[in-house]
Design a protein around this nucleic acid. Structure first.
Lengths: 171, 171
DNA sequence: TCCGAAAAGCAAAGATCTTTGCTTTGGCCA
DNA sequence: TGGCCAAAGCAAAGATCTTTGCTTTTCGGA
């Protein structure tokens, strides 16, 4: 039931469908439109719910190469490859489009924060000087997401450049 | 005619209207819905057009205080204050929501790039070591826009912190 | 097993959107 | 002035969405 709905939304977003409405989703999911109208206030709410579910699936493991620079670079590249995929990019845009007011929690950011903490923690244990978690979020994660959301091109060297900039801050 | 339409869209976006459709815009603007259907493919296209017009109105002058750090800080604060206004934030989100594929040009970014160039140019003329324009875009502008688009809180010290981080890169 | 509440389906009515052909208006230039 | 053309208006038909009351199903707990 719920799974069918999520799948339907995922397919529609993936196809870049121009009109994603409750009736359309319901038909694809094989459920009654009324069900959707009753459970979600509007399509945006459902969209965000599915987007968050898709974007926070933590199948990603944080690299552990023994070097902070390499960990960050690989991690940033994994993220870049992930969120530049058309489906993910559309999810991100659909998600922010549904934002109406300042949010107190952002699951995506929280996930990244935990991952960054892990990288930093390991680096410090090795005795490396590392940037703060906030610096990583502001200067690696934020620019990456910014580029994706604004549909600006993200070339392969971009993530590496961001990492080098951040490391330059603490040297 | 066009002005009335733009104004209507601006008002609706400003009010956070939940449903912004051609008929609704037309009524507010005092024009016939058919006119809108004929001129724009969909509401998103019109929305983006108005958003870009609103977001690139260059009424902003770039600070010239004689110090790079101060120029950057004031400039970043001006931007932060500007784009965190609810209307502007909604415009930004509406704009990115309308993005369907990688764009070759982004007026907002181009405007910021020019402003950053101006600040950097003046700093270098004074003999100060300055970050690159790209560094400023990636590490000051991008995080600010990222926060606004994702509806994350932007506190007053945030812009200042970003500036300090960027300056730390080149010292 | 039976009951009851919550969730899902159904159907119909009403609202809203979207398209279309045709008419009207408003400049622009010969 | 008159005619032309693009743009805007109008109205009607059809599609799509949204709401609502009611029925049916589902799924525990008694």
């Amino acid at each position: 039931m719920l799974a069918a709905i999520y799948t339907a939304v995922g397919e529609l977003v993936g196809e870049g469908a121009d009109k994603i409405s409750f009736p359309v989703i319901a038909e694809r999911a094989g459920v009654n439109p009324t069900t959707l109208y009753r459970r979600w206030n509007d399509v945006g709410a459902l969209l965000e719910e599915v987007a968050v579910a898709a974007l926070t699936r933590d199948g990603e493991s944080v690299p552990d190469t023994g070097s902070l620079e390499q960990d960050l670079t690989e991690w940033a590249n994994i993220i870049a490859r992930d969120i530049t995929r058309p489906l993910r990019a559309r999810y991100l845009r659909a998600m922010v489009a549904a934002r109406l007011e300042i949010v107190s929690r952002c699951l995506v950011t929280e996930t990244r924060r935990e991952q960054a903490s892990e990288v930093v923690r390991r680096a410090r244990e090795r005795g490396e000087t590392a940037p703060t978690v906030s610096q990583i979020l502001d200067h690696i994660i934020a620019p990456l997401y910014h580029h994706v959301v604004f549909a600006l091109p993200v070339d392969p060297g971009y993530a590496r450049r961001l990492v080098r900039d951040v490391l330059a801050m603490v040297h």
